[in-house]
């Protein structure tokens, strides 16, 4: 437990660095948020007024003090390009990204790990080559292209996929808000209508987004498994007469687990990054599309908030991965 506290405590300077860093970067970069908001036809008098409204007329140190004071109050600022407070925008968009990310990661894990195991067990054989080609193609596939292809093929041509206009169809009401994850909420509230519809909307972008994760996870699983399968105790296990399935799933996979968990944890970060493209293509109302629009608009508050959020997520995921290592391997268990 003290280890956890120590790790959580050590996040503070990192986060403070992120807060200062992103504040400065947003301000140093060229581009005037007031001008971007007001558009190309704006007169100087409009800009002056707008800067005053946006608090940009204050000295930099004052802006920083206001920003950090706001953070301590839990106030993330105001997103000028949406006309809503950042916290409100997050509340509606973040669950959408989490839902998409988790779904993609889930697909990545259930497809990637078996593929990797299969590939390692059948090392050098035909199936191994096939799996490696799949993972190579998956890793190098441009997401926007794949997304457009899926929409063109599965929506326009075949009619399997619903219109790529977000999380639900027009005629379906969102389930009662509990977590903001539509799939989970509709299960919890027994809303079968929303369940089916949100699943149909979620599966396509999740599949597209998962392709990179499948590739990475299967590759890392393969190499971790290959390393483990070469160990003496595996030979012993075989010699003891254990069935190959038991050897692979109990003895080998468990020992390959730390490496696999690390890559799965890192993949979650990658997925949040990849979500930017997938969300834009599928009009998925998540943080990804919000990020690009905020940056385009040089809208300081949401850019700062998203960066901070991303840092927190990365730190927490890393902590969880580190902690999980002890579960698989007592040697790295922390006192």
């Amino acid at each position: 437990m003290p280890f956890v506290f120590q790790r959580v405590f050590s996040m503070i300077p990192t986060l403070a660095g992120v807060v200062v860093g992103i504040f400065l970067i947003t301000r140093v970069l060229p581009g005037d948020p007031a001008r971007t908001l007001a558009g190309e036809q704006a007169a100087p008098s409009i800009l002056a007024k707008l800067r005053e409204h946006m608090g940009l007329d204050k000295p930099l140190w004052q802006q920083f003090v206001d920003y950090t004071a706001g953070l301590f109050r839990g106030d993330l600022g105001y997103a000028w390009h949406t006309g809503h407070p950042v916290a409100e925008d997050f509340a509606t968009r973040f669950p959408a990204t989490v839902e998409l990310g988790i779904a993609a990661l889930f697909i990545g894990v259930i497809a990637g790990i078996p593929l990797g195991v299969l590939s390692a067990v059948k090392h050098g054989r035909f199936i191994d080559h096939v799996t490696r080609v799949i993972s190579l193609v998956g890793a190098s596939m441009p997401l926007f292209w794949l997304g457009l292809l899926v929409i063109w093929l599965c929506y326009s041509q075949l009619g399997w996929a619903p219109a790529p206009v977000g999380r639900l169809g027009d005629d379906v009401q969102p389930p009662t808000h509990i977590t903001g994850l539509y799939l989970l909420d509709s299960i919890l509230t027994g809303d079968t209508m929303a369940l089916g519809n949100s699943f149909a909307h979620l599966i396509w972008p999740a599949l597209v987004l998962s392709v990179g994760a499948i590739a990475m996870i299967s590759r890392m699983t393969r190499s971790a498994m290959l390393e483990v399968l070469g160990q003496d105790y595996i030979r012993t296990a075989h010699a003891k007469g254990l069935s190959p399935t038991t050897v692979v799933s109990v003895h080998a996979l468990k020992n390959a687990a730390p490496a696999i968990t690390t890559i799965v944890g890192l993949e979650l970060g990658q997925l949040l990054g990849g979500a930017v493209i997938t969300e834009t293509i599928f009009s998925w109302p998540g943080i990804g599309g919000y990020v690009t629009k905020s940056i385009d608009a040089t809208d300081y508050a949401p850019v700062q908030a998203i960066t901070l959020l991303a840092a927190v997520i990365y730190l927490v995921v890393n902590l969880l991965v580190d902690l999980s290592q002890g579960m698989f391997d007592p040697r790295v268990r922390h006192g």
Partner: peptide, 10 residues
Amino acid sequence: ARAQFLEALA
């Protein structure tokens, strides 16, 4: 980039 462009024009 657009934001930069608008500032440069000004």
